[in-house]
Amino acid sequence: MNADQTITGTFVQGRPIVLDLKKRKRPQEPVAPFPYKSEEVTVRNEADGINLAGTLTLPEKGTQFPAVVLVTGSGAQNRDEELMGHKPFLVIADYLTRHGIAVLRCDDRGTAASQGDHATLQTKILPEIRKPP
C-alpha cells in the first residue's frame, strides 16, 4: 500500500502481470425514484409448503417484456445477494429494468422474508424445459 492509497506490484500465476490498483469511489446502489415499477411479491412453493419473498421490477411502459430470474449462488442470501455492503442483484436488476427487462429476485429460503430452511435446500434439475405455446 502506497502513501497515496494505491497498490502497485506484480501478480504471478504462471506469468507475471503488473498491477496498479486505485480505490475509486463510485455509486453502486441505485437510489429512488426509479424510472420503473417495483413490487414486493410472494412466490408460493406448493411442494414444500413455503413462500419465497421477493421483488419484481417492471419497465414503466408496456405490458410484455423479456424477463430474468436472478438466482443466488452458494450460501443463504437475500434478494439483493448482499455481501459486505454491496448489493450486486439490486445493481443488476436496476440496470436490466432500465433497459426494458423485467427482473424477479427472491430471498433464499429461510433468509430475510422467505420461509423454509436453507440448510435443507436441494436444487432440482427439471426433466424438460417447456416453451409457452
Score class of each variant (00 low, 15 high):
F65M: 10
G54Q: 02
L90P: 02
A53S: 15
P88A: 08
L56N: 06
L83A: 09
V71I: 10
H86Q: 14
I92W: 08
L52G: 01
L83K: 04
V68R: 01
T57A: 06
L52E: 00
E81N: 08
R79W: 11
R79K: 15
N78A: 07
V68Y: 01
G73D: 04
L56A: 07
P88W: 07
K61Y: 02
A76T: 02
T57V: 11
S74Q: 00
S74K: 00
L58G: 03
L52V: 08
S74C: 05
S74T: 04
F89V: 06
L58N: 06
L58H: 05
G85M: 13
F89K: 02
A67M: 10
Y95I: 12
R79P: 01
D80Q: 12
H86W: 04
D80L: 10
E81F: 00
L52A: 05
L52Q: 05
Q64Y: 00
G75C: 00
P59F: 02
G85Q: 09
V69P: 04
T55L: 14
E60K: 14
S74L: 05
L90C: 11
V91G: 02
L90T: 11
G54D: 10
L83S: 05
L90A: 15
L58W: 00
G85Y: 02
L83R: 04
A67K: 09
I92C: 08
R79I: 13
Y95M: 12
G62F: 00
V71T: 03
P59K: 02
T57E: 12
V68S: 03
L58V: 12
T63H: 12
V68I: 13
T57G: 11
A67P: 08
H86A: 10
N78D: 15
E60D: 13
L56P: 12
G85H: 07
L83W: 11
K87Q: 08
V68C: 01
E60T: 14
A67Y: 06
D94Q: 09
L70W: 04
A53F: 13
